[in-house]
Design a binder for these strands. Structure first.
Lengths: 330, 330
DNA sequence: CTGTTAGCGCATTCAT
DNA sequence: ATGAATGCGCTAACAG
């Protein structure tokens, strides 16, 4: 920066100002400075700047998996919302474990983010402590944690899955099955499973058939394997609900491969409204979730606190929309 | 950090050393320090540290889209490879435009990454200049740029698509069609298209039918629309190759919906070996690309230069593997 | 093994 | 509108 200042014949301070929009520098000097910046190919060193200004311009976000279009959409929502503010996203993924999350949180806090967005409400105790002492706004997303840390942007996975069950029950299905992962690692998955069980109870139906399958992410292949287990143990199952559209798609393909008609022989529903669910044949009935909006809202809430200087705020909860999308598979 | 030093009864420097593994601090002092760190919930401020040490611990990576499992895999490969080194990934996506890439590069260079990974070889002039003056190792991935900036980890999309065409020709197909996006924005897409055209020529077949469709990412829905255009204009097409498995899947579903048999009435092939291609029915013949390995290798090459202090290196090119996966759709 | 001194490259604050 | 002094929180380099 000193080089630029020399070349432009001004002080470093003036260069600093010229490079920061919104500060008063005369047009002539600014032009001289910009020319020098261009000639030298100078790029501001933000790590130095943030040390001085005590604002890093970072926002951290942690998702379970980057290779999942639902969470990728959330990440997009965050980035897009941050873009206009000059905040930059530090993205990490936990592979669905709180241990990895804890490590990630620590690594990110070392970068002094001005806010942090988490997925879900399951965190290690140490992670909670670190977040608390970091003194930055925290947004938990994608579910409604029992003990929120700070703000929440999400929806009840339990209720959403319950709604899906009831929608299918209204169409006449009675014998339900559920395909999902093991419960401990994927809290959203287990909430959906709970929602399934409760809805069946409320409807006064005989208990649903549950097939737990592997650790998340439950993918297409596992969905196919799971539906096979389901049909072997409970051949009379009328409708299978899956923890996500990927497993639902796997189940659908496997059933068709075995010559079963969907939905006549067996109905299949998913969760998440992935693109594949809309265009496979038949289309998969699913629960649409506002993934992108979750990211947008989460970022927006952080920005309010960070840039707006908003001080007092309780543990606000922002509910995001979900809705059943009925397609040919049910 | 001063607080920690006080509490432990040592100097700040000793705390700094204790927090950095690989430095010699007596076991007793280290324990005292760790206790103080724990009590105070202290987390190292890496932005300050990196200013002093002139090492930020950042690596930047820029991909076209985060919501694409191929690039998500590459990002995973990078992160996983970086993990053990303590380097942290700054990830950005361009939405397939060099303008957005230029902005991203500038934003990332402000963070002083120690290396940068790009997708493809198409960059604006300013981006090239900025990268050059940044003085950090650059790895271009996913293709073989005509004018590499520095290192390259990728493969020839042209050759790969050519190989796919020849594989199908060997099975007896003669009248080929190609579905892809407009050429300017997605260089890998246009290289694949070129590879298609050249292979057809080399085989001495009549020119392939080309349907260009929209801007990337060409998705499932557009694949379905494109195959409709194809069949309307050239109903005699025997085999359709698609720029990616997503469009191939869309085409497959659309054909089936129209009562066509795949591959008997029309053969369909994709590119990228997405999970959906393996589990739909019939499975989609495709080109498997080592997405994860591209990320791994790219990161590995950066690490060699960054940590190994390796100085002189030319414009090395590291070729990654690809192979045809034949499935039921052809 | 530990402490001291200095400075990383900026922005804040106060001058002019 | 511009400049000068100061310090952000840490680590490199050297001393002990």
């Amino acid at each position: 920066m000193a080089d630029v200042a020399n070349r432009a014949g001004v002080s470093a301070m003036t260069v600093s100002r010229a490079l920061k929009e919104g500060s008063r520098v005369s047009k002539a000097t600014r032009e001289k400075i910009m020319a020098a910046v261009n000639d030298l190919g100078y790029v501001l060193d933000q790590s130095a700047g943030s040390l001085s200004s005590r604002k890093t311009g970072f926002v951290a976000a942690i998702v379970p998996s980057i290779n999942n279009s639902n969470f990728a959409d959330t990440a997009r929502g965050i980035t897009d919302e941050l873009e206009s503010t000059g905040l930059q996203l530090l993205l990490g993924y936990t592979e669905y474990t709180t241990e990895k999350e804890e490590k990630l949180i620590e690594a990110m806090l070392r970068r002094r983010p001005e806010g942090i967005i988490l997925t879900g409400g399951a965190h290690t105790d140490r992670a909670r402590r670190m977040l608390k002492s970091a003194g930055i706004p925290v947004v938990e997303t994608w579910e409604l944690p029992a003990k929120p840390i700070d703000q929440v942007v999400g929806f009840s996975n339990e209720e959403a899955m319950g709604l899906l069950v009831k929608t299918l029950a209204a169409k006449g299905y009675r014998k339900f099955g559920y395909i999902g992962g093991t419960t401990s690692r994927d809290t959203r998955g287990s909430q959906r499973r709970e929602g399934f069980i409760k809805a069946i109870e409320e409807l006064g139906l005989s208990p649903g058939h549950l097939v737990s399958f592997g650790v998340p992410p439950i993918s297409i292949e596992q969905g196919g394997q799971a539906v096979v287990s389901m049909l072997e143990r409970w051949p009379d199952t009328e409708a299978v609900l899956c923890v996500s559209d990927l497993s639902a798609f796997g189940a659908l393909m496997e059933c068709q491969r075995r010559g079963m008609r969907v939905p006549e022989d067996i109905a299949i529903a998913g969760f998440g409204d992935y693109e594949v669910a809309a265009f496979c044949h038949p289309g998969i009935t699913t629960m649409n979730v506002d993934c992108y909006g979750i990211g947008q809202q989460a970022a927006r809430r952080l920005i309010q606190v960070i840039r707006g200087g908003e001080k007092k705020r309780g543990q606000e909860i922002f509910l995001t929309a979900y809705r059943v999308i009925e397609r040919g598979s049910t």
